[in-house]
């Protein structure tokens, strides 16, 4: 509140028409951090409200940070208070984990219940626009999937996977919020797995292994999204008012074996009957980056159709799937040779 006096004169002198106030939950995540950096440079945004437990390092002059923990019970009232005092116009809800965790109870509180808190705050003090970060992996990998999953396809992610289930629950409550709150534009961006030079998630760790385990006899087509395109999609969603669900994906597909070849790694094919027990054991021993339910993604298709985002959101990915893999590979090789710091 105190620094409001310092900020407002600047904002008024710089942006003649009053710009938007964009709030981000999970502001210190990869997407949040980089989006704050992008929005800081954008004149159409007058103020950024960063909500997280840690202050993002990219927070600049326009950013105001509030320490908010979505796992706390009374957080919805606090959020509503912040929305009202900051006059939040657009809320980006990105407080999700990018990789599966063993602390699944905490993850459930943060993702599933945390989304409920955020939506309750939005009901109490409506925002004009609500943008949700979601994933195409929620469709679930299956041999019965069409090659390109449309947005209308049901989310059939593995029911045993807490990681997927929490996110599916979050999407469901957001969908019902969109139905019951006509005053708020709700945009859901389902992002393909993100690859890029600086991003870190379960996928970059999986492809960063010397021997990359694959499932023998299966070579699914993979689809990735470059980190720059991921940020561009969120920026588009902030700037354009396009409600709805969108698959945000890179162009083109690559078989998993080709992806591994491009990254200069070696595939280690394991027959699928033993793959699941091995994956379970490694996950229990905390030696692997993803639970055994993720083996499905190395067996079957989970590729989404990005045409709707292209036509309605006008999202043109700058990087194809292949280019995203190559860009990731370049910096991964630098990291391998210890020429690049592992944490960007």
């Amino acid at each position: 509140m105190t620094d409001k006096k310092d900020h407002d004169p600047h904002a008024v002198t710089k942006v003649t028409p009053p710009g938007r106030v964009v709030a981000l939950t999970g502001a210190d995540g990869f997407l949040g951090r980089n989006l704050i950096g992008l929005l800081e440079d954008d004149d159409r945004v007058s103020r950024i409200v960063a909500l997280d437990v840690e202050r993002p390092a990219t927070a600049g002059r326009k950013t105001r940070f509030y320490k908010v923990d979505l796992t706390q019970p009374r957080v919805d009232a606090r959020l509503a208070e912040i929305f009202a005092s900051e006059q939040v116009d657009t809320l980006l809800h990105m407080a999700f984990l990018s990789s599966p965790t063993h602390a699944s109870a905490w993850a459930h509180e943060l993702e599933s219940v945390g989304t409920l808190h955020v939506l309750n705050a939005c009901r109490e003090r409506p925002v004009r626009k609500f943008v949700l970060w979601s994933h195409t992996i929620l469709y679930g990998a299956s041999p019965r999937n069409p090659n390109f999953l449309p947005e209308t396809h049901p989310l059939r992610g593995h029911s045993e996977s807490r990681f997927l289930r929490d996110k599916i629950e979050a999407e469901q409550v957001v969908a019902s919020f969109a139905r019951t709150s006509p005053g708020t534009l709700v945009t859901v961006l389902r992002l393909a797995p993100i690859l890029g030079p600086t991003v870190k998630n379960y996928l970059t760790r999986y492809l960063g292994r010397t021997m990359v385990p694959t499932v023998m006899g299966f070579d699914p087509l993979m689809q990735f999204l470059h980190e720059v395109d991921a940020l561009a999609a969120f920026k588009l969603a902030v700037m354009r008012d396009v409600p709805g669900v969108f698959n945000i994906v890179g162009d083109g597909v690559l078989p998993l074996s080709t992806v591994i070849q491009l990254t200069g790694r070696i595939g280690l094919p394991i027959p699928h009957p033993v793959m699941y027990p091995i994956a379970r054991a490694l996950w229990t021993a905390q030696l692997s980056e993803a639970p055994p339910t993720f083996v499905d993604y190395a067996r079957w298709l989970c590729v989404a159709d990005g045409d709707k985002a292209l036509n309605e959101l006008k999202f043109h990915p700058a990087f194809t799937t292949r280019e995203a893999v190559l860009d990731y590979t370049h910096s991964q090789r630098m990291r391998d040779a210890r020429l690049l710091r592992t944490t960007p």
């Binding site: 390109f148 087509l221 690559l254 078989p255 074996s257 080709t258 070849q261 070696i266």
Partner: peptide, 26 residues
């Protein structure tokens, strides 16, 4: 070194294109 392992990795997909079409035709 992992030279031989890499050779093995290459051999496994020696006859494959670098890119496939949208439906996986190689």
């Amino acid at each position: 070194s992992d030279y031989y392992l890499r050779r093995w990795g290459q051999t496994a997909i020696r006859d494959r294109s670098e890119e496939v079409d949208d439906f996986g035709l190689d």
